[in-house]
Design a protein around this nucleic acid. Structure first.
Lengths: 394, 394
DNA sequence: CGCTGTAACGTAATCGGTTACGTAAAACGT
DNA sequence: ACGTTTTACGTAACCGATTACGTTACAGCG
C-alpha cells in the first residue's frame, strides 16, 4: 500500500470517529495546492481508521453525486435538488451556476437514491408466459411505447408458463419495488392472485381475467369473437366447419373460443359435435398436428376456424402438403390478426384484436387510476384471401 | 383531524428535534396496552412538529422494513442483515427467531435500499431498434433467460431506430444505474459510443460491432454467411441469382451481406452486376416490393438470396401471386432461420444464426469478464424446401 | 429607523438497507 | 485461575438523493 494523492475534498471526507482536526493527522500535504498524501504506513498502524482509509482508496473513480455538484457550485444539496426538480427558491444566477457545474461534470442524479425517498421507481413489471409469438411482440410493443411515453421503464419477465419462475419473478418485482405489474395471457391462479395482492402494487391483467379476485383487466370477448368468426364462415355458406382449438383446459383462450364456435353453429341449427374440434397449443406445429387429426376424422369439412394465427398457418401448411387448395377447397380463418396473417400464403383472414392498443391501454390503466375496472376492447374481422364463399347447396 | 391510535413502535418514531422524553408530550396513552393517542389538537398548535405528525399519519400501511423485523425479533438490524445475506455471526437459535418474524411479516428487503449501498442493481438494459421481428424475439428470449438465471432483470428499451429515443433511454439507464447494457443490431454511431462510454458500465454489442470504439461484441460473420448462402445456390446449379438486400447503407446487415453475395458469384466467374440486387428494409412488405423490381429487371433469375427471412417470405408471396412455383421455378434462400422460415409455404431454406445463444452469450459476457473481447458465432444452413437443384445446362 | 413579510438558501432527518468497528461474554489455553 | 482469542452481536456511518423546517438578508412600510 502506498501513499496516495488526495484532493481537498477527498481529504475533507476523512472524519474519523475520534476527536481531531477536520483533516486527520495521517493526511499530510499542501492544503493550498490541493494536494494531499495519505500516509498509509502510519494509517496501517492505526487500526481504528482503516475503514475510512479504505473508503478513500475506493473513492477513485466514483460517480459524481449531488454533493459534488453542491460543493463545486458553492450551494447546498437542497438547492441543487430544488433546481433539478424545478421547484422554487433560487435566483436565476444560482440556477445557471449550478446547471453549469452539472453540465461540466456530466452529473446524472441516481434514480436509486431518488426512489428510496420518493418510494417510486418509475418502473413496471410485465409478466408473460412466452416471448415467441407475434401476439406477445405486439403487446410488448404497445406496453413499452406507452410506458416510455410516461417516463416509465419496463422489466420483462418471461414466466415460461412455469409456476416457479412466476413466483421468482413476483418476488423480484416486489423487492425491486416496481410501481405496477402487468400480468398477461395466463390464468390467474389463487396463489398468483394472493402473491399479487400481497405486493400491494397496482396490477392490470391483459388478455386474461380473474373471477374471484378483482383486478382490472384489459381484454376482448373471446367467446363473442369466436362466435363472429364462425358466424362469418356460416354467412359465406359453410356448414361443415371444423375447429383447431387451443389448449383444452385454457380458461381464457381455450374454452371460451370453443364455446363461441359451438354457439354460432347451434344457432344455425348445426348440432354440437365435439369431434369437429381438435386441440393444439396455439403454436404452429400443433396446428399441423391438430389439423391432421381433424382431417382424418372429417375429410368433408369446407372450413376451419383456428384459435390462433400460428395454428392457422399450420392448417395452411397441412393443406399445402396434402394438395388441398386454400381457399377453393378449404377456407381458413385465424385469430389475432398478427403479422403472421399478413405474410402467409394465401394471406389469412383473421379475427383482429387491437393488441398494440391493449398493451397501451394496460399501461394507462395502471398509471392513471387505482380504482379502474378494466376495459373490453372490440374485435373485428380482417378479410384477406383464405376464406371463400361456398356456392350452391352442400 | 382526529386523534389517532398509535402502537408503541409508531410512537417511538416520534423524535422531534427539541429535547424531550423519547415519547413526546403530545402522544398520550397506555404504554402497557400498546395503545397511544395522538393528540392532534395540541399538535396543530405546535407547528414545530407538524412534519413528524404528518409522517405518523402517513405511516399507516407502510411496508415492513428491516427495522421492524429487528425490533420484533429483539435483535439489531445488523444481525437481520447478516442473516439475510448468509454471512456469519449469529446462533442458529437467533436465526430461527428472525426467520420466523420475516416469514410472519412477509418481509422482503428493498432492492432499492440495497442497491444504494451495494452500488449494483442486478438489472441490465437492452437496447434494440425494434420489437416486431422474430429475430428480436428470439434474441430477447436468450437474453432474458440467461439474465434471470443469474438473478438479473432486464429493462427493455425499444429505440425504434430513433436517435432521440436512444439518447433518452441511455439517460434513463444511466440514472437507474443498470449494471450493464446490451446494445443490439444497430450501428454504433460516435454519439452513442460516447454516451455509452460515459455511463461507465459494461457494454456488449450484439449483432453489430464498432470499429473505432472498443466494445465486446457477439455476432456472426455476415459477409461469410451471405457468401455461403450464395455458394450453396451455386452448388445447386444456379447461376442467375438475384438478391433482395437489406437497407442499402446498413453497415451491419446490409453492405456485408451484399459483399458476400458478390464475392461468391465472382468466385464462380459471374461478374458483379448491381442490377441483380434490389433493396428492402428487412421486413415483409419491402420484400415483395424489392422482388417485384428485381423480377421486372431480371425475369430470368432462377434463385434469390434474401437478406432476411421476412423478405424471403415477401419473395414467396410475390412468386405465389404471380404463379411462379417455388422451388421448381424459383429457389429462395432466407437469412436468420427464424420461426418464420419454418412456417412458410414452402418451408424456407435459410441461413441459421444461433440467435438465442447470441442473446445468452451476450449476458454471459456482460456478467463474467470486464475485459472480454466478444465472440463470433458460427452459422450454418438449414435446408428446407425452398431451394431445388437445377439440372442440365442453362 | 425599527418592524415585518418574504425570497433564497442551509441544515439535518429521512428513505431502507449494508458493514466497519466496538464490545461483552463465552470459550480456550497454559 | 487468569490472560487471550473467538463468538455473537450492537452501534452508527454511509449510500445519494428529497424535503420540512430554520435562518438570514433584504425589501417594503409606517
Amino acid at each position: 500500500m502506498e501513499g496516495k494523492l488526495l484532493n481537498k475534498y477527498e481529504a475533507s471526507l476523512l472524519k474519523p470517529p475520534m476527536p481531531c482536526f477536520s483533516i486527520p493527522w495521517f493526511v499530510r500535504g499542501d492544503f493550498e495546492r490541493n494536494k494531499f498524501i495519505l500516509d498509509s504506513e502510519s494509517v496501517a498502524s492505526y487500526g481504528y481508521v482503516t475503514d475510512y482509509v479504505w473508503r478513500i482508496m475506493a473513492t477513485e473513480g466514483k460517480k459524481t453525486t449531488i454533493k459534488d455538484i453542491a460543493r463545486e457550485a458553492g450551494v447546498s444539496t437542497a438547492t441543487v435538488s430544488r433546481i433539478l426538480n424545478n421547484l422554487e427558491g433560487y435566483t436565476g444566477e444560482t440556477r445557471k451556476r449550478v446547471m453549469d457545474v452539472i453540465e461540466r461534470r456530466q452529473y446524472r442524479p441516481s434514480a436509486i437514491a431518488r426512489g428510496l425517498v420518493s418510494q417510486q421507481t418509475k418502473t413496471i413489471g410485465v409478466l408473460l408466459p412466452s416471448l415467441s409469438s407475434r401476439f406477445m411482440n405486439t403487446l410488448i410493443e404497445g406496453i413499452e411505447s406507452q410506458a416510455q411515453a410516461h417516463g416509465y421503464s419496463v422489466i420483462l419477465c418471461n414466466t415460461d408458463r412455469d409456476g416457479v419462475r412466476t413466483a421468482d419473478y413476483l418476488k423480484v418485482l416486489g423487492e425491486k419495488r416496481v410501481d405496477g405489474i402487468i400480468f398477461t395471457s395466463e390464468w390467474v391462479t389463487s396463489e398468483y392472485a394472493l402473491a399479487l395482492k400481497k405486493l400491494d402494487v397496482p396490477v392490470v391483467l391483459v388478455a386474461t381475467n380473474s373471477w374471484q379476485y378483482s383486478f382490472p383487466s384489459i381484454r376482448t370477448e373471446d367467446k363473442a369473437a369466436a362466435y363472429s368468426a364462425v358466424r362469418y364462415l356460416i354467412e359465406k355458406g359453410h356448414r361443415r366447419i371444423g375447429m383447431v382449438g387451443g389448449t383444452h383446459s385454457d380458461k381464457i383462450a381455450g374454452i371460451p373460443r370453443e364455446e363461441g364456435y359451438f354457439e354460432a353453429l347451434e344457432e344455425s341449427g348445426i348440432p354440437r359435435d365435439t369431434t369437429m374440434v381438435s386441440h393444439g397449443d396455439f403454436h404452429f406445429a400443433s396446428g399441423i398436428r391438430a389439423m391432421q387429426e381433424l382431417y382424418e376424422r372429417h375429410p368433408e369439412i369446407t372450413a376451419v376456424f383456428a384459435a390462433s394465427d400460428e395454428m392457422a398457418l399450420g392448417v395452411l401448411s397441412f393443406a399445402y402438403a396434402h394438395g388441398i387448395r386454400v381457399p377453393e377447397q378449404l377456407s381458413v380463418i385465424g385469430y389475432d390478426d398478427t403479422l403472421d396473417a399478413q405474410m402467409s400464403i394465401p394471406p389469412l383472414t383473421s379475427i383482429h384484436q387491437p393488441i398494440y392498443e391493449m398493451g397501451a391501454e394496460a399501461v394507462m390503466t395502471l398509471l392513471e387510476s387505482q380504482d379502474a375496472m378494466g376495459k373490453v376492447l372490440p374485435i373485428s374481422i380482417t378479410e384477406r384471401d383464405s376464406v371463400c364463399a361456398l356456392r350452391g347447396s352442400e
